[in-house]
Design a protein around this nucleic acid. Structure first.
Length: 845
RNA sequence: GCGAAAGUGGCGGAAUUGGCAGACGCGCCAGACUUAGGAUCUGGUCCCGCAAGGGGUGGGGGUUCGAAUCCCCCCUUUCGCACCA
């Protein structure tokens, strides 16, 4: 072993050896307990960035720890390889997207190997290969068969300059991201949807199982699904005798209804216009309201705007006629697209009514305010603001005096028995639109036949291969439509002439089930090998960025529920524990090319080595928080590694050579603390304290920065003890034991350097094959701890006590009593209460 | 506006359940070794004070022998949702 640290040499050596020894390869083994560590698969953008480094370093530390704890660990990686950037690059350079994609994968794979992450590379997948995407198509067909995949007309963002469809993310301030001057227009085209709304309730319900997910992610998902319980009530439009359904969560306020508002896009609007006395005028005004609503998607704050249609609707509860307005703030896509206006008890209605001079009628009184409801039911109050809480009903006919809760229940029931309404549940979540008018994605396996209609491709004809020769222009609709050989086909049903669907799937489909595929990446008769999934699932730990809190992490849950219904899996949630790491920022902003604050991992590997980059990444901040990169901070990390390496290497050379393989179980040498020199005691204590900290932290808290800090302290202590060690005050056996434990701990964070040192200490196998040593509570106890002493409840200073944590409380007490007796010289002790590490409470006479 | 999280030195951050605030590292200061230092090593580094001592965890109040930690009010920041009826 060299006496100085040469990361480039060491890292190349160990990466080669790990691969040679197949160190990270694992197989189903029902005799052993498994552990599935998963990190979110990267998009092959060309080079890994610091966010990747952080993500994979966290996962790697965990995987290595679980391995050393004796678990059968699966730790896979793959590529989210379809998507827009490759297609855009292809358009620009007139090359094929696969060329970019596979080039990028090769580069990034090399960089991940350079980082030394413990992946089982045999399980690598790329979602753009037919072997993978054929199963996307298989899932599509299963969805189609179950009525979960359907087609409907839907709005898309269309850039007139590009002459193509834009994803929502490509719309910037209402304009195209490539043509900042060109406003995006809406177009209606037929698109495929997956009925995730059918699973809304289960997605909510099963959150109960996700006890190890961050609260933040769950509340974001809950918000996104947006369940609200309410009622649909039909008002009758008097002039055309047609019912108009509104949705409300507050049917108890309906006696305070003074108008009905329609969304500008509500279907009945056109009808009202045509029946209007002055259709031209109403149309003009309706268009004006509509235009302001569209404008609102760009603006932050929308000024409320509306127009009275001149029509009126009958409130079924009290027979009262109220005007029908078109209002710009009513959403067509939520509920029924029509709402009742209760200005006294809704802030938006209140604002609208005061602006347009509509009447305001209170019908709910605050509970317990000593409020006496007015006897006259015609009284119109004019409050200064909307009262939106639940309360007691008045001015509400037969429902007067009821609480809101009871009234909602009873009024909903009455609506049902009298036939003008019903209780309903609304969700904010919408069906998942999966069609993309793009080339670089999974072809949708549907054929259109004039005779048979929409027919799914037969399973045995999958995959529908993405044709390689396509002229990508970025203009017009789906590129696949321009390939006659692809489009023209035979109907799977009748054999007649037919056309293929030319849209491709959203890439979120790819990432919704990729982690199943890792367990049997080459399985050829089904998307997954159910035996392998049975063994490896659920994912024990999933690690990734918070930016996927909603889309990916909901789609993934949805997919698993569908798979459960198909009978592919026998559980409903795929991920037991989720961890969302913070972002990597520099100079106060997220690293990005446009900001010019990017730190390239490649350069860091070349300058410092992978271990230094890993150590710094873990040390600079707890993984859950954002991490602010500092160029001088990493210098500290490399300094530490140099020091640690030299220290261990120097001592290692003094130990007699010989076979000294670490035991496969976690037995450890034991010493009688009383027989040791104080230096030996100090070293053993520090070592076991560090071990305890690191062990407990990896088992749950995940503040790896403090683990690294503890390891630094241990190295600092060893340096300070250098003279005593040279003077022979610490026996080699004890010193070597401490150094070994130090190296095993370091192997989680800086595996290459640790393996080099581990070998230097006489071990023939990598540290990963060693058992994680158990800390000894007695050794890990604080030595001579200073503890506050209270006498009769008053603080009386501090004493030094030896406290053992855990097991033997008697010993703690005996020692404490003796010392305390000395401390309070001679007074009679009635009672002593010892709280280890915290407080000695003494009662004296 | 609603919801969530967070406010600790010059900086990143420590302080498992209330118990020595500032671990560990960066930076800075001084020194050693050096032709040299952006290498390495040693010492110092919350504030006031020569010192004894006192003050100090966004601000104000409270509970407690004891509060960065628990409770109430206020301020600030970040993130998510933003007319969802």
């Amino acid at each position: 072993m060299d006496s100085t640290y040469d990361p480039q040499k060491i890292e190349a050596k160990w990466q080669a050896r790990w691969a040679e020894q197949k160190l990270f390869e694992s197989e189903v083994d029902s005799a052993r307990k498994k552990y599935y560590v998963l990190e979110m698969l990267p998009y092959p953008s060309g080079d890994i960035h610091m966010g990747h480094v952080r993500n994979y370093t966290i996962g790697d530390a965990l995987a290595r720890y679980k391995w050393m704890r004796g678990l059968n660990v699966i730790h896979p990686i793959g590529w989210d390889a379809f998507g827009l950037p490759a297609e855009n690059a292809a358009i620009k350079n007139q090359r094929h997207p696969s060329e970019f994609t596979f080039n990028h994968i090769d580069r990034m794979r090399g960089q991940l190997k350079r980082l030394g992450v413990s992946y089982d590379w045999r399980r690598e997948i790329a979602t753009c290969t037919p072997e993978y995407y054929r199963w996307n198509q298989w899932f599509f067909i299963r969805m189609f068969e179950r009525g979960l995949a359907y087609r409907k007309k839907s709005r898309v963002n269309w850039c007139p300059s590009c002459a193509t469809v834009l994803a929502n993310e490509q719309v910037v301030n209402g304009c195209c991201w490539r043509h900042e001057e060109t406003p995006v227009v809406e177009r209606e085209i037929e698109q495929w949807f997956w009925k995730i709304t059918a699973y809304a309730e289960r997605l909510l319900e099963d959150m109960k199982e996700l006890v190890q997910w961050p609260e933040r992610v769950l509340s974001m998902q809950q918000n996104w699904i947006g369940k609200s319980v309410g009622a649909e009530i039909a008002f009758m439009v008097n002039e055309i005798e047609e019912p108009l359904r509104i949705f409300t969560t507050r049917v108890d306020t309906i006696f305070g209804c003074t108008a009905v508002y329609l969304a500008p896009d509500h279907p009945i609007v056109q009808k009202l216009i045509s029946f209007s006395e002055d259709p031209e005028k109403l149309r003009r005004e309706a268009d004006r309201v509509k235009a302001s609503a569209i404008h609102a998607r760009v603006e932050v704050e929308l000024e409320k705007l509306g127009v009275d249609t001149g029509f009126s609707a009958r409130n079924p509860y009290n027979g009262e006629n109220v005007p029908i307005w078109i209002a710009n703030f009513v959403l067509a896509e939520y509920g029924t697209g029509a709402v009742m206006a209760v200005p006294a008890h809704d802030e938006r209605d209140f604002e609208f009514s005061t602006t347009f001079g509509l009447p305001i009628r209170s019908v709910i009184a605050p509970v317990g305010a000593g409020f006496v409801p007015p006897k006259e039911s015609t009284v119109i109050n004019v409050p200064s603001e909307a009262f939106v809480e639940y309360g007691i009903l008045f001015n509400s006919g037969p429902y007067n005096g009821l609480t809101s809760e009871i009234a909602i229940e009873r009024m909903t029931r009455d609506a049902e028995t009298r036939g003008f309404g019903k209780g309903t549940i609304q969700y904010r979540i919408k069906d998942w639109g999966i069609s993309r008018q793009r080339y670089w994605g999974t072809p949708i396996p549907i054929v259109y036949c004039d005779a048979c209609g929409m027919v799914p491709v037969r399973d045995q004809d999958l995959p529908v291969i993405l044709p390689p020769d396509v002229k990508l222009t970025g203009q017009g609709q789906s590129p696949l439509a321009s390939v006659p050989d692809f489009v023209n086909t035979r109907c799977p049903n009748c054999g007649g002439r037919a056309r293929r669907e030319t849209d491709t799937m959203d890439t979120f489909v790819d990432s919704s089930w990729y982690f199943y595929r890792y367990t049997s990446p080459h399985f050829s008769t089904a998307p997954i090998d159910t035996e392998a999934v049975k063994y490896w699932f659920p994912v024990d730990q999933y690690i990734g960025g918070i930016e996927h809190a909603i889309l990916h992490l909901i789609y993934m849950r949805f997919f698993t529920k569908v798979m459960q219904d198909i009978g592919l899996v026998n559980f409903s949630e795929p991920v037991a524990r989720l961890f969302t790491q913070g972002m990597v920022i520099k100079d106060g902003a997220k690293m990005s090319k446009s900001k010019g604050n990017v730190v390239d991992p490649k350069e860091m590997f070349a300058k410092y080595g992978a271990d230094t980059v890993r150590l710094y990444t873990l040390f600079a901040a707890p993984p859950a928080r954002d991490f602010d990169w500092s160029d001088s901070g990493i210098e500290g990390a490399t300094r530490f590694l140099n020091r640690a390496y030299r220290l261990v290497a120097k001592h290692a050379s003094t130990f007699p050579p010989g076979k000294a393989d670490h035991p496969k179980d976690n037995r450890r040498p034991r010493w009688d603390l009383g027989q040791l020199s104080s230096e030996e005691r100090r070293l053993i204590r520090k070592t076991h304290q560090t071990l305890r900290h690191v062990t407990e932290d990896l088992d749950g808290r995940w503040h790896f920065n403090t683990d690294v800090a503890m390891a630094m302290e241990l190295v600092n202590d060893l340096s300070e003890m250098e003279e005593s060690i040279e003077a022979g005050k610490v026996r080699p056996k004890i010193l070597k034991n401490s150094l070994e434990y130090l190296v095993l701990m370091l192997s989680l964070f800086v595996p290459h350097m640790a393996d080099e040192l581990w070998e230097g200490l006489g071990h023939s196998e990598p540290a990963l094959r060693a058992a994680w040593p158990a800390f000894d509570p007695e050794y890990a106890a604080e030595d001579e701890l200073e503890i506050p002493v209270q006498v009769n409840g008053k603080l009386r200073g501090r004493i030094l006590v030896t406290v053992a944590v855990g097991e033997d409380e008697i010993r703690e007490r005996a020692q404490a009593e003796e010392k305390v007796a000395q401390a309070i010289n001679g007074r009679q002790i009635v009672k002593i209460i010892v709280v280890p590490k915290k407080l000695v409470n003494i009662v004296v006479k």
